[in-house]
Amino acid sequence: MATIEHNGKAYEVDEDGFLLKGAEDWDENWVDYVKGVEGIADITDEHQKVIDALQEYYKKNGIAPMVRILSKTTGFPLKRIYELFPSGPGKGACKMAGLPKPTGCV
């Protein structure tokens, strides 16, 4: 497994750049790193709101929220979420929030 270094901190990641240890390794510095690879200029309050919603839901339920739930809790329609995270809620937002890589037939 690969290790990524950013601003002096090392993260264990898989081949798609998702954190292997999840919340244990996650911090603001990780958000700053993913921001670069996902083509996001600045982390706005809206980005933060999505990240917080994902982390809160994951902590409570052990799974990532369904897209409709994410839209409902943040108030952002899917279109807006794609504007914030060009790779989408799974590959973009979940990666940034330190959630496990989405699985299944994707």
Binding site: L20, K21, Y58, A64, P100
Partner: peptide
């Protein structure tokens, strides 16, 4: 590995 890569309820 399970903690980091799995959503256990799924």
């Amino acid at each position: 590995r399970i903690t980091g890569v799995c959503e256990i309820p799924l």
